[in-house]
């Protein structure tokens, strides 16, 4: 499926998905992130989309799942586990040793990021899309994509700085 065709078929669903995500999450920024993620997932599935009976139904299902994931993550954060886990995971001596080992250390950086940020990094650095192109695929404002890209890059930077100290 070509980029243009994808935009034509998938993007008209955006308003509806955004409304749905907004209703589930009750937070405009989270809803925007979810919709971005939905379209990026659809983009990576673009060649399999023909196998589904209804792409709108599939998009609604993905949106629902991503929203529920986020609600679960929020609850975990409420318990204070989310904030503690990744940081302490990095700081254990075993983990530091593992990260200094050149083979395993490549494996552990992007895997710690949220799925949306992983996908944006991948599109930006491997598939060579510019921010504006990603924004066009997801129907988002470029600023919204840029924000997630910025967060992802900063997280990677911090991971490296922590390993160096």
């Amino acid at each position: 499926m070509k980029q243009e065709q994808f935009k034509e078929e998938a993007l008209p669903l955006r308003a509806q998905l955004l409304f749905y995500a907004q209703r589930l999450l009750n937070n405009p920024e989270d809803a925007e992130d979810v919709v971005q993620e939905v379209f990026l997932k659809l983009w990576y599935m673009r060649d399999e989309l023909g196998a589904y009976n209804s792409v709108p139904a599939l998009s609604v299902q993905i949106t629902k799942r991503l929203c529920l994931n986020r609600i679960n993550a929020r609850q975990r954060r409420g318990e204070g586990l989310d904030a503690v886990n990744p940081a302490s995971d990095l700081l254990t001596p075993e983990a530091l040793l593992e990260q200094k080992d050149s083979v395993t250390h490549v494996m552990r950086i992007i895997a710690q990021l949220p799925a949306l940020q992983q996908t944006i990094l991948r599109m930006r650095h491997i598939d060579g899309f510019e921010v504006e192109e990603i924004a066009a695929l997801t129907g988002s404002a470029p600023e919204a994509v840029r924000m997630n890209l910025s967060r992802a890059r900063k997280k990677v930077k911090e991971t490296f700085f922590k390993m160096q100290s």
Binding site: L40, M107, L121
Partner: peptide
Amino acid sequence: GLEKELNLLTGEPA
């Protein structure tokens, strides 16, 4: 490194 890591994972977003 990013590409290597992704290839080591699955080659697809998780």
